[in-house]
Design a protein around this nucleic acid. Structure first.
Lengths: 341, 341
DNA sequence: ATGAAGTTTGACACCGGTGTCATAATGTCG
DNA sequence: CGACATTATGACACCGGTGTCAAACTTCAT
């Protein structure tokens, strides 16, 4: 019992002595087929190592049981390295998809280049997950475009006023509050923030706002001098901290918009002979693996990537099914380690 | 100029006043179509936001411009965390695919569960990349099966005698040599190895062999007592090292089969009051991000994941094109940091 | 004007499934 | 035993492209 090339449902039909229609039904366990016929078909299918041709199936049914993920590169990041936080997200999304029986198409996206949102247009995926920090948010018109074409998609990241997308994100504002509260409760008075506190990085801005508002409730002000701009890399955090020190800004606590920034900051602080946490307490954001390994280990606001991946997938699936969904805010959690003990 | 639902080539044909065949040719820039016709068709296609339906196209041409990656879970690994080394590989493979104009389907694979090599069978991907440490290698029969079906695939990892697959891997044996040479040149005499030195983990076994052979050339023997079994996790490395110490094994240098193991080992050594590198030099394998962040920073044998990803992809594409390819061994590189200075 | 060669196009089968409808086979009941 | 519901199956159109082949139209040489 052999076939030339891959086995098709016609091959099975031939060997089973039934029509191809019946084979198709039998394989999908339609109640319309006789029990014995079904068994025979399955048996032959197994013997021929038959697998449904997804292209044909998808073409007919007009759906793909596949989601696509567009991973936006950090515009400045090292070519070869991906932000570990997003790599984690990628992992948890992959798992979440698998659990739902969906496949995942992965694609990198340089900010500059034309979006390949064609995925959904070209019927390769039923929906799209957009993943990346900050800058890609500029692409409002693209999102409008996706929306106009009735493309199903969800974004990871802070909700931006006026942007039409549905987002899943960590409660960045709440994360900033947690950091501030921790500094306050440990008696810190002079705080600095490192990160991009502008609309270019909505997530960072929210973290900053939560941090600042909470401090101000305790009459601790955060002046312009106490804010250093940085993108999410170690180098950037290092330089930002360096320039704070060079400008003679006094501080006993430092909140970085991401762990990578915090790691760079710690390096700069150490080089300046400052002790952590005695002289300066440091809190990061993300809880990437490295946070636990550096010395001193880094206190940080944890984003639950596992849950985030699940929510992104389940929200997207709900959207595809035509259900109404709303923003999802995931609760952050402060992990206290040596850098603030 | 509108269409109900997504635009098809028939819609374009209608608006352009030509046949659908001509549209198809024009869009693929066939030299058979008149220049002016081509322009008109492209213009309308753009206006209608037309995208080729990949399902239909793939069905007809019987190829998908897609590769699939099967990521095998560490059998014992934490559910939510993926081995960072493989996450890196995933990143570089994704990039390599993008560069070649291929899409990437990602799938996790629990060892226990049935392989979904169906990917290629079901025409969703033109080829498969298998990625994972050790144990999945048991699945010889599966590989035979893939081969029998003429499925195109490449594996990451050590070549195993008798296994029919084509592999790309780091020169694990050479990596072991590098570690041994470094210990020898810094005057170490009593070495231990931590990792699974059995056929279950071909990569680890090769690392071990390179290490052992090189030491023996210098009349340094590696007895059974100096080998501790461990899988690639921090905990396992910690416990293995712990039991070496508990058994009163004396050593001045430790080679771990992976960075995660080495990180666990360092923790155990520190707890035992041993100084690194003064009392014990430590070398890991992989050069994951954390290696640079722990204290002391970890000397390690680096695997070039960027190159590895590219080679996996280019080898697979060559295979798909029907070219003959051979094993690829990538040169490892010793990164010296504080743990052996 | 006529035939050969080159250029451009349309008609149509085909890829491998899914869904609809008609038909055949079997069973039920008055 | 005939009318009718029930169950199981086959025939066929269809999804949206691609590739083949024949036909229509030019162009140019004879």
């Amino acid at each position: 019992m052999k076939t030339k090339g891959k086995a098709t449902s016609f091959d099975i039909a031939h060997f089973a002595g039934v029509s191809q229609s019946t084979v198709s039904r039998a394989l999908r366990n339609s109640p319309l087929v006789n029990e014995e016929t079904r068994r025979k078909v399955w048996e032959i299918a197994k013997k021929l190592n038959y697998k449904v041709d997804k292209n044909a199936s998808n073409l007919r049914t007009q759906q793909s049981a596949t989601l696509a993920i567009l991973l936006f590169e950090d515009p400045t990041g090292d070519e070869s390295q991906i932000n570990p936080f997003f790599l984690n997200m990628l992992g948890s999304i992959t798992r979440a998809c698998a659990k739902e029986g969906y496949d995942l198409l992965v694609s990198f996206q340089s900010i500059s280049q034309d979006w390949r949102a064609e995925y959904e247009d070209s019927h390769r995926a039923d929906g799209i997950i957009l993943l990346g920090y900050g800058d890609y948010m500029d692409y409002q018109s693209r999102l409008q475009n996706l929306l106009a074409q009735d493309t199903k998609f969800v974004c990871w990241g802070a909700k931006v006023e006026g942007r039409p997308d549905l987002t899943v994100s960590c409660d960045n504002y709440g994360g900033g509050e947690l950091a501030a509260q921790h500094f306050i409760s440990t008696g810190k008075k002079q705080c600095v923030f490192i990160g991009d506190a502008s609309e270019h990085s909505p997530e960072f801005l929210m973290r900053f706002k939560g941090f600042k508002d909470t401090l101000e409730q305790q009459s601790i002000s955060l002046s312009e001098r106490n804010i250093a701009n940085a993108i999410s890399t170690e180098e950037s955090g290092y330089h930002a901290t360096h320039s704070l020190l060079a400008n003679n800004v006094k501080f006993d606590s430092l909140f970085a918009a991401s762990d990578l920034i915090a790691i760079g900051a710690i390096k700069a602080l150490k080089e300046a002979g400052l002790r952590i946490p005695e002289d300066v307490s440091v809190i990061g954001f993300d809880n990437i693996a490295a946070a636990n390994y550096i010395t001193p280990s880094l206190s940080t606001v944890q984003q639950n990537t596992t849950l985030a991946g699940q929510m992104l997938v389940s929200n997207l699936l709900a959207l595809i099914k035509g259900e109404q969904i709303t923003e999802t805010l995931l609760p952050p959690k402060l992990i206290i380690r040596q850098s603030t003990s």
